[in-house]
Amino acid sequence: MSAAMAWRVIPWASLVETPWKNGGGTTTEIAVAPAGAGMDDFDWRLSAAKVGGPGPFSSFPGVDRTLLVVDGAGIELRLAGEGSVLVERGGSGFTFAGDAAVTSTLPGGPILDLNIMTRRDRFHHAVYRARDVGPVGLPLGADLVLVVALAGRAELAAGDRTVRIDKLDTLVIDGDATGLELEGGGDIVVITLIRQGA
């Protein structure tokens, strides 16, 4: 493990689920920066939501977001003036502007989704999935990396250190994460966060 790398695990079991204001589902905040930030002043936010029915998405001006489906068949997003897209389980998600007027339907019933949101003048994010054995191949230059297990248990190693994360546990890596490898199978999503104007 690089001396510049520090990491910690956020166990899913330690997090609290709260209802949406409109009653359409529940959300679980996994991590947010700065710590304690609300919906209007975060730099970035990672959360998971249970979506139980169709309805409008909340507006987040100045924010870019990516949504992935963890459980359930999928969610259809209808973006005003841009048509619709079906986000299915197993994919790398869909990225869209939080400013957009979005409504959703659930063709296959309720889902659990994963959301990463970044305020675009402060952070940029990229999302990709890694499966099975082998190097994760993290890009250089990320300020922070979030690794979320999407199914089963994943083992990640860097140098002589190994960490195991179960479904929806999150590994937070601060610093240079090159050389991180996924061992023993698994299905993870890797989110890189790069500070803007740094």
Results as ranks from 00 to 15, higher is better:
M1K: 04
S2M: 05
A4E: 11
M5G: 02
A13F: 00
L15A: 06
T18Y: 02
K21N: 07
G24H: 10
G24S: 07
G24M: 07
G25A: 00
T27Y: 08
E29V: 11
A35E: 12
G36A: 00
M39F: 13
D40P: 01
F42I: 09
D43H: 11
R45K: 05
L46I: 08
L46A: 02
G53C: 07
P56K: 01
F57V: 11
S59E: 05
F60P: 02
P61W: 04
V63P: 04
D64F: 02
L67V: 09
V69G: 00
D71Y: 08
A73I: 03
E76D: 02
L79E: 05
G81T: 14
E82S: 12
S84T: 12
S84V: 03
S84R: 08
L86A: 09
E88D: 05
S92E: 15
G93K: 01
F94H: 15
F94C: 07
T95D: 09
G98L: 08
T103N: 06
T103E: 13
S104I: 10
T105C: 02
P107R: 11
P107Y: 07
I111P: 06
I111Y: 10
L112D: 03
D113Q: 01
L114E: 06
I116R: 10
I116W: 09
R119S: 01
D121H: 15
H125G: 02
Y128H: 11
Y128L: 01
A130L: 04
R131N: 03
V133G: 09
V133S: 13
G134L: 00
V136M: 14
L140A: 14
L140E: 10
L146K: 03
V148G: 06
E155W: 06
L156H: 09
A158V: 14
A158F: 10
A158Q: 10
V163I: 12
R164L: 11
D169G: 10
D174P: 01
G175D: 06
T178G: 05
T178I: 05
E181V: 15
E183T: 11
E183Q: 12
D187I: 11
I188F: 02
I191R: 07
L193N: 04
Q196Y: 04
